[in-house]
Amino acid sequence: MSDDSSAASVPQRGHDAAERILVVDDDPQTRHMVVRYLLENGFQASGARDAREMREALGAIDVDLIVLDVMLPGASGLDLCREVRQRSTIPVIMLTAKGDETDRIVGLEIGADDYLAKPFSLRELLARIKAVLRRRGARPSSVGSTVQSLRFNGWTLDFARRELLSPAGAIVELSTGEYDLLVAFVENPQRVMSRERLLDLSRNRLAAGFDRSIDVQVSRLRSKIEADTGPPMIKTIRGIGYMFTPSVHKP
């Protein structure tokens, strides 16, 4: 990569324990500004201008989170987010045009963990990065602190490994947001919960301003755990929110 915020800047930090953030944006001013700010706040950070440089960076270093602009030359940020989701669970924060709800909905539908509209505050971006990384690394706060896993309808949610196993024993990939939402459901089975309560429980309060974010995450979770036939596991309670219908128990 040719710009001075490329992956080559990462080793200069010399902090192996610091999270590595990849900033993908074709605007050099934005890219350099974000990379510099993240470096100043204790992260390892590097930049990429387009799909080619992003793929090169992902092949060269272990990345803990991607800040990904929607509007990129060639392959769009949405295309790249979909590509990332097909092979990993690296958290992705999308940068979208101000007020463009369509990009935000599509981004969440294909697996983005959060979004931020341009122009944005660097402090807010930093807060969102920390929140996503904290949710990714955190153990569940209540049930998960004493129980290693829970089962429902043949499925197993492993808190220690942060993995969901299907009734056939296959690992089902979940984004950070989907995992946190499922934890909120299995910790509160057969209870009606409002969207606001689900936002609180899934540690996703930063997304509260976008009230359709929970609906999108629920839709994605349903597509992964519900069969085409049979009663729904996540029931919509019109005008209120959702209810997780299965019985939940220890293995």
Rank of each mutant, 00 (worst) to 15 (best):
T156D: 13
K98H: 10
N153F: 00
D100P: 09
R123H: 14
M71R: 15
D50M: 03
Q29C: 00
Q148F: 00
R220D: 07
L80V: 05
L199M: 14
P232G: 07
L116A: 03
G239T: 12
V10N: 04
D228C: 02
I66Y: 09
D158T: 12
V172R: 13
V70N: 04
I90H: 01
G137T: 12
E226W: 02
A18Q: 02
A45V: 04
S142P: 00
R135K: 08
G239P: 10
D215I: 05
R52H: 11
D215W: 01
E173K: 13
L201V: 02
D215R: 03
L39C: 01
A8H: 12
M243V: 10
Y37G: 08
D27V: 11
P91T: 09
V106I: 15
A48G: 14
V216S: 11
R20P: 03
L133H: 06
D228V: 13
R195D: 06
G209H: 08
D62H: 13
G42W: 01
V10M: 05
K98E: 12
L181E: 07
S166I: 08
V143W: 01
S175Y: 08
L58W: 02
I93V: 15
S213D: 11
Y242L: 11
A7M: 06
T229L: 11
G154N: 09
Y37R: 08
I93H: 07
L182A: 08
G42M: 00
R123D: 15
R87P: 01
P119E: 04
L125Y: 07
G59Q: 10
I61Q: 13
V147I: 14
D50F: 00
D114A: 04
A131Y: 03
A60E: 14
L122R: 12
N204Q: 11
A168L: 14
V192M: 01
R162T: 06
G111H: 04
R197F: 00
V192P: 09
A184C: 04
D79W: 11
G137C: 02
R128E: 09
R162L: 04
P73K: 10
D3P: 06
I61E: 15
G107F: 06
D114G: 01
D26F: 09
D113F: 08
Q190N: 12
V192C: 05
L39G: 10
L72G: 10
Y115H: 15
R203N: 05
Y242C: 10
C81E: 07
